[in-house]
Simulated assay, not measured.
Amino acid sequence: MISPYPGYLREPHYYETDQMGIIHHSNYIRWFEEARIDLLTFLGMPFHTLEAAGISVPVVAVDCQYKNMIHYGDRVRIEVYVQQYTGTRMDFAYRVYDDKTEQLMTTGSSKHCFIATEKNRLTSLKKTAPAFHEVFQQFAEIQPEPQA
């Protein structure tokens, strides 16, 4: 049985800031990836496991909305949700909260597909990797994106 994902805790690094001590906008996409990789590990499918099975998961689109500024010294929790899972594609939603105040700081999303590395073609996990498919499908059911 899959448990709900508790979120990814992140303390911004000084080098990620601009001259005002605010996290530069380009870093949020990297944070989303860190959280997504952490989620895969939480689900028992570290990224290298997918790659070893001949599956790559490229990003086909990404989006980010900045609600409040995050500063060096803040600590954030990045929650990851599945917006949609079809077996050939998976879309994630991200919500970044201040870990102390619970204030919503940033939201975002990323869209992905599953590629059979050997053929370099879109693949259905339901057919080519049913164990992965089952995990993703169960996670999508227990931790869907919350309504706005």
Rank of each mutant, 00 (worst) to 15 (best):
G73W: 00
E51P: 00
F92V: 03
H71E: 04
K67M: 08
P58W: 13
T88W: 06
A53H: 10
L39P: 03
C64W: 02
M45T: 07
P46Y: 07
F92R: 01
G73P: 04
R75Y: 06
T49N: 06
E51M: 09
H48A: 10
S56K: 13
D63N: 15
G73K: 04
T88A: 14
Y72R: 00
P46Q: 10
F47Y: 15
A61P: 00
V59T: 13
Q65P: 00
V57D: 09
M45Y: 12
I70F: 01
V60I: 15
Y85Q: 00
G54T: 08
V80H: 00
K67E: 11
P46W: 10
I78H: 04
M90Q: 10
V60M: 13
Q84H: 11
K67Q: 13
I70N: 02
H71F: 13
Y66F: 15
V60K: 10
T41A: 14
T49L: 09
P58Q: 13
V82F: 09
Q84K: 15
V57W: 14
T49P: 00
D38Q: 08
Q83Y: 00
R95H: 15
K67N: 07
F47N: 12
R77V: 05
L39N: 05
T88E: 12
V62H: 05
F42V: 03
I55G: 05
M90N: 05
I78E: 01
V80F: 04
A61Y: 07
F32R: 02
N68S: 09
T86G: 05
R77M: 06
R89H: 15
K67T: 07
C64H: 02
Y94D: 04
I55K: 06
R89D: 06
T88V: 15
V62R: 03
Q84G: 06
D63V: 01
I37W: 07
G73T: 11
A93K: 10
D74H: 11
H71Y: 12
A53W: 00
G73C: 05
R95V: 09
Y81P: 01
A35Q: 03
Q84P: 01
Q83T: 10
